[in-house]
Design a protein around this nucleic acid. Structure first.
Lengths: 349, 349
DNA sequence: GTGGGCGATGTTAGCGATCACAAGCCCGTG
DNA sequence: CACGGGCTTGTGATCGCTAACATCGCCCAC
């Protein structure tokens, strides 16, 4: 920087002003400085800037170590959006889901001088702990259920689940079974609520709730009971993996989807299109949410110098994507007819 | 820090020495300083340390924006390992796969004072560009094919593909079709080579190569031709998504897996267990690789002060995981026995 | 003509650590 | 007894930048 100043014949402070786009520099001087910077291939040192100004142009992301599709792609979306805004991204992953872990992780980031923190943590405990975090740094939760006092970017899980359930009811199914996610996930809870209330509104019986852990394995095990039961014609799984597992199991036990059983997933992950029949599911605009979260948190950073605003909750639209895993309810037990079952049984070898 | 020094009755430099675990501090003094730090809840400021020492305790990760399972879980693995080593992680994603993009991304990180860079970029172009990166910073490639002059942590793709192919040959299949990944991915190329050479060694015919783009969709489209052809009894897809799609398509067209068609995938992603029948596939120890990559790069950082060592390539073991999608080859055409083919050509059983 | 205001630039301190070197102390040795 | 050397500790500069205030012209109005 000193070199640039010398070459441009100005003081280092003027160079700094050019760097920070202060208006108080004559355009002539600015040109000279810029030329010098180019010539010397000068690059400002963010570390020094961070030390001097307290601003690091970095946002921290707290996430947790999981192979789940949602969090991973959210992280990439955040990186992209932050980069576009000229910010760096520092990630830290949660060791466990308790309060101390959250605090210590956020301290790590804080000490790195991040200007804001984005939390990708859909678990109830984390969402609660969030409200306890020191308020000196803007914090935004992504993909979390609404939490008091903390800005959130998410989709309306309740509505999504309701729409999925409604879809099945409208296809003529008497009721819909639900394979839920773990009870400590906000999303899981909201989806259960959406499912239940929709059934109630439709005056449908509310079957026993099955609770999985998002994994295909759990979906597999839980659907075993369901598939065996001829009364079960429609399943709404709380994510695509469990839904895909239910399809697998149905096939294995000799049933056809959707002729015998309709299945709906949630998330619209790649799995949804790689199974057969492809999954009807609820799409969440992950990339858009990530971008919105970054916008929101940077807005907050900007505002931190002026007045305080109220935390906002940004709800993004979900979309029901109807693919092949859902269809009309099979006719009641006795009858048995539909031509969809493949070649009539009597024609074969 | 000044406060700590004052409280402990020492100079700031002594505090610094305690912080850096220098041996040149008497244990008595150290105790006093530590006590003062605890009492004041003192936390060193990494930014200042980075500025003064040039060491930031941060590693940069360059990845690219993709929903693929491998890169995402590698990133988390890296974070975990780095954190355990007391390092922060800063991520930057590649805009495009060309050289300028790589340079500029690495410059971003470099300017952040990262001490090393990990690159998750399995594309050939990126691997090549890596060798051009300035050598002032340790660079390690993860999940990339071996590239000259750059340390690499990966599994032996060639061997993995060979093992998958051999598995099918040993089950009695005359030959194995291959749905490859895009030609600009090193992994894809190596897997093709492994497949081809194994066939040649077994004196099996090498069928026409099909090239997909990792997506389920491409797997779907490409397997259409294969599944129709009764001569095709075994398919090795270069990743699980494409393999799962092939299974879907086979089902859709009325074939059974593995009775009519055996299918092997690669990667052992969650998809592998959520489809039916579950996929036989090649497992890659992603987490272990991530950890190894961090170890390697930190070792390099450490060594940077002393002599220079030779770049290492760390090859991790893959594992063939036999699940349900592979089985013995169906008996040759004429004989025909399983009732699955639909009406037998020769007049019935 | 002179004081005030304003835009452009320079000067001097830090930010919070580390580094290089110097200094004090205690001990053993010639 | 003086000197050298190993430990431990302290001093001042420095990393590259920004913040706050000082300074310098210049133009305008009374």
């Amino acid at each position: 920087m000193a070199d640039v100043a010398r070459l441009a014949g100005v003081s280092h402070q003027t160079v700094s002003r050019v760097l920070n786009e202060s208006e108080r520099v004559s355009s002539e001087t600015r040109e000279r400085v810029l030329a010098a910077m180019t010539k010397l291939n000068y690059r400002p040192n963010p570390t020094a800037r961070a030390l001097a100004s307290g601003r690091s142009k970095t946002v921290g992301v707290i996430t947790f170590d999981t192979p789940l599709y949602g969090p991973a792609s959210t992280l990439f979306g955040i990186e992209r959006a932050a980069h576009d805004a000229g910010f760096f991204v520092s990630v830290a992953s949660l060791r466990s889901l308790d309060m101390p872990s959250l605090i210590s992780t956020s301290d790590d980031l804080r000490r790195q001088n991040v200007e804001a923190i984005l939390v990708i943590a859909p678990q109830r405990e984390v969402a609660q702990a969030l409200t306890q975090l020191p308020h000196d740094l803007p914090v935004v939760a992504v993909e979390a259920g609404p939490a008091e006092g903390v800005p959130v970017v998410a989709v309306h899980q309740f509505e999504g689940a309701a729409q999925a359930t409604r879809h099945l009811i409208e296809l003529g199914h008497e009721t819909v079974w639900h394979i839920a996610g773990p009870g400590d996930w906000l999303e899981a809870v909201d989806r259960v609520d959406g499912w239940r209330q929709t059934l109630e509104v439709a005056h449908a019986r509310v079957p026993k709730l099955l609770v999985g852990d998002w994994s295909a394995r759990s979906g597999y095990e839980l659907s075993a009971d369901l598939v065996r039961d001829p009364g079960v014609t429609a399943i709404f799984a709380a994510n695509d993996d469990m839904a895909a597992a239910a399809i697998s199991l149905a096939h294995r036990m000799g049933f056809e989807v959707p002729q015998d059983l309709s299945i709906v997933g949630f998330d619209d992950t790649p799995v949804a299109t790689s199974v057969w029949p492809s999954l009807t599911t609820i799409h969440q605009p992950v990339a858009a949410m990530a971008r919105a979260a970054v916008d929101l948190v940077l807005e907050e950073v900007h505002r931190a110098r002026h007045g305080t605003g109220t935390p906002r909750q940004l709800l993004h639209p979900h979309t029901l994507i109807v693919r092949e895993s859902t269809g009309a309810a099979p006719p009641p037990e006795g009858t048995d007819a539909p031509g969809d079952d493949g070649p009539p049984h009597d024609g074969g070898p």
